[in-house]
C-alpha cells in the first residue's frame, strides 16, 4: 500500500476545544476510504484538516512528505477536491455555471477559459449524470440531483483526491446507493476517495479501507472484513449488535440487537 496523503501526529481542535490529540493516519492511494464513527467523534474535523480548512495545532498533514500548509493554494486545489456537508449554491446559478467553478484552480489571470476547461466540465457532468440538467437553475433541482451537481463540480476540479463530508445525508436510499456506486466508479478510474459516511453498512460494502473513529482517535482501520466485529461496534458506537454477512455483497453487516 502506497500513500501520498498522511496525517502525522496531528492535534486538531477549534480554539481551546481539542478534538483529536496526536492522531496519525495514512490514506491509501487509489482506494475508497470511509471514515465512520458516532456524532462528534472528529470525522469531519479530520477531513477539514486534510484539505487545509483547519490548521493542526501540532503535527502536520503531508502530501508527498511536504506539509500541505507549505503548498500554494491553487496547487493544493489541483490535488485535493473537497465537498462539504451542506454547500449552498448562489442564487440564480445554473448547473453548467456551478460545475464550471470547479475549474477555478486551473485558471489564472492570463489563462482564462480554455477548451481543456470545457472538456473537463463536460466530462464531469457526464460522469455525475447531470449533463441533461446543464441549463437548469440549481435551485429548481431535487436533493439527489443537486448533490450530483456538486459532485460534478468537484470532479471538474480534476484532482487525484476526492474528499466528501457525509455526501449521502439528506438523500433517499436510491440516491444514496447511486452516489456510492459513482464514488466506487471514480475509485476504479484511479482516484483516491475519502468519505465520511454515516451508515456503517454502506461503508462496509463500498469502502476498501475503513477508518473507525471514537473520541477523536482512530479506534480501528483496515478492510471492513478484518476490522468490523461486535466488539468494535460496541466500543465505537456503544451499540450491542450481531454481525452477519451482507446477503448481496458478503461484506460485514451490523444488525443492532
Amino acid at each position: 500500500m502506497t500513500t501520498r496523503l498522511s496525517a502525522q501526529d496531528v492535534t486538531l481542535g477549534y480554539g481551546d476545544r481539542v478534538v483529536s490529540t496526536r492522531l496519525s493516519l495514512d490514506v491509501p492511494d487509489g482506494a475508497f476510504t470511509a471514515v465512520v464513527g458516532p456524532n462528534g467523534c472528529g470525522k469531519s474535523t479530520l477531513l477539514r484538516a486534510l484539505v487545509r480548512l483547519l490548521k493542526p495545532a501540532e503535527g502536520a498533514i503531508t502530501l508527498d512528505s511536504r506539509s500541505v500548509s507549505d503548498l500554494p493554494a491553487k496547487g493544493l486545489a489541483r490535488e485535493l477536491a473537497f465537498l462539504p456537508q451542506d454547500p449552498l449554491a448562489p442564487e440564480g446559478i445554473t448547473v453548467h455555471q456551478l460545475v464550471s467553478r470547479g475549474r477555478y484552480p486551473h485558471q489564472s489571470l492570463l489563462a482564462l477559459w480554455t477548451p481543456e476547461d470545457e472538456r473537463a466540465v463536460a466530462e464531469a457532468m457526464v460522469t455525475a449524470e447531470v449533463e441533461d440538467l446543464a441549463d437548469r437553475p440549481v435551485a429548481e433541482l431535487s436533493g439527489g440531483q443537486r448533490q450530483r451537481v456538486w459532485v460534478a463540480m468537484v470532479l471538474a476540479q480534476d484532482t487525484p483526491y476526492l474528499l466528501l463530508d457525509e455526501p449521502t445525508s439528506f438523500l433517499d436510499i436510491t440516491h444514496q446507493y447511486r452516489l456510492l456506486a459513482l464514488l466506487s466508479r471514480l475509485r476504479d478510474e484511479g482516484r483516491t476517495v475519502i468519505a465520511v459516511l454515516h451508515d456503517i453498512n454502506q461503508a462496509c460494502r463500498f469502502a476498501d479501507h475503513l477508518v473507525a473513529m471514537k473520541d477523536g482517535r482512530v479506534a480501528a482501520e483496515g478492510a471492513a472484513a478484518d476490522v468490523v466485529d461486535a466488539a468494535l461496534i460496541k466500543d465505537v458506537f456503544d451499540l450491542p449488535s450481531v454481525i452477519v454477512a451482507d446477503p448481496v455483497s458478503g461484506t460485514p453487516m451490523v444488525v443492532p440487537e
Binding site: V51, L53, K74, G75, R101, Y104
Partner: peptide, 21 residues
C-alpha cells in the same frame, strides 16, 4: 478583475478555500 475570484467566493468560504481562492 476580481469578479472571477468572487465566482469562487460566491460558493461559500469553505468551498472557495478548497478551490484555492
Amino acid at each position: 478583475v476580481i469578479a472571477r475570484s468572487l465566482n469562487a467566493i460566491a460558493l461559500g468560504e469553505t468551498v472557495a478555500h478548497t478551490l484555492g481562492a
